[in-house]
């Protein structure tokens, strides 16, 4: 089921410096924003700044990174035609996709954690490591990365131009559901990540734009007890479907398939 060399290969493929650079720069940018908000937003506490940047930027960056890196697992191999080397060897397709998925999750989770650390540094300074919410965020990012990657990988196996659907889900559906009345947020990975991290409602949430962007304009009753199992189940089910789909269907280099 799991092949360490495929995992290592996926990590090495994804962790090339030129691939990581935009995300590293994004982390520095988030640190800068978290620090700058102190001078811009008069009465914002470090908690407010940390929460606002986390919910507005870090979680969405994690989702975006998952969309980008999930494409490297199969779609990019098909695009670059290297899929043929993977599919004509005595390693099962389920092992290939699962090992590469785990490699992708590790890279996305570490990038998310790096961006979260940068945000914490910008908001709290060196005290970030003594903040309980920071560690809950790390957990939320780790589990959220697994869920996003699994769901986006499934989408990439099912449809062409999967990136478009993933971005619409992240920036459209997830932004909307966090602010809609009712319980539609149950179907949002980001809402479950918020459920795990349990950020306090910020004083900035009285500002309507900020509260919409942070998904705090309606109440989120999710807690870690619910959200952790939900995201884990989503991850397991989605990756299971990916393995079954990838094993059953043909994957040819793109131009030949058209």
């Amino acid at each position: 089921m799991f092949a360490s060399f495929l995992f290592t290969h996926a990590v090495r493929q994804n962790a090339r410096f030129n691939r990581l650079l935009p995300w590293i720069l994004a982390g520095f940018f988030m640190a800068g924003i978290a620090a700058l908000l102190a001078s811009l937003g008069g009465n914002m506490t470090p908690d407010d700044r940390y929460t606002n940047v986390t919910l507005m930027m870090v979680y969405r960056a994690v989702a975006l990174a998952a969309a980008v890196f999930s494409a490297t697992i199969v779609s990019q191999e098909v695009e670059q035609k290297t899929i043929v080397y993977l599919l004509t060897r005595p390693t099962s397709r389920a092992t290939i996709i699962f090992s590469r998925y785990v490699g992708g999750v590790v890279v996305v989770a570490l990038l998310g954690m790096f961006m979260q650390f940068c945000t914490g540094l910008g908001a709290y300074g060196p005290n970030v490591l003594s903040q309980g919410v920071f560690y809950r965020d790390l957990l939320a990012i780790a589990i959220g990365s697994a869920a996003y990657m699994a769901v986006f990988l499934l989408i990439s196996l099912l449809v062409n131009r999967a990136m478009l659907f993933c971005i619409l889900y992240t920036f459209g559906y997830e932004t909307a559901t966090g602010n809609l009345p009712g319980e539609s947020y149950y179907a949002s990975i980001m809402a479950h990540m918020q459920g795990i991290s349990q950020h306090a409602m910020t004083s900035g949430s009285s500002n309507r734009t900020v509260s919409i962007l942070t998904g705090q304009s309606s109440s989120n009753l999710l807690t870690g007890k619910v959200s952790i199992p939900v995201l884990l189940i989503v991850s397991v089910v989605a990756i299971g479907l990916c393995m079954a789909w990838f094993t059953h269907f043909e994957y040819m280099p793109r131009e030949d398939a058209e």
């Binding site: 080397y85 004509t88 060897r89 390693t91 099962s92 397709r93 059953h248």
Partner: peptide, 13 residues
């Protein structure tokens, strides 16, 4: 998608 076959086959695309 049969690993048993790929054990006895080498492919140069």
């Amino acid at each position: 998608a049969n690993p048993e076959v790929f054990k006895i086959m080498g492919y140069c695309p």
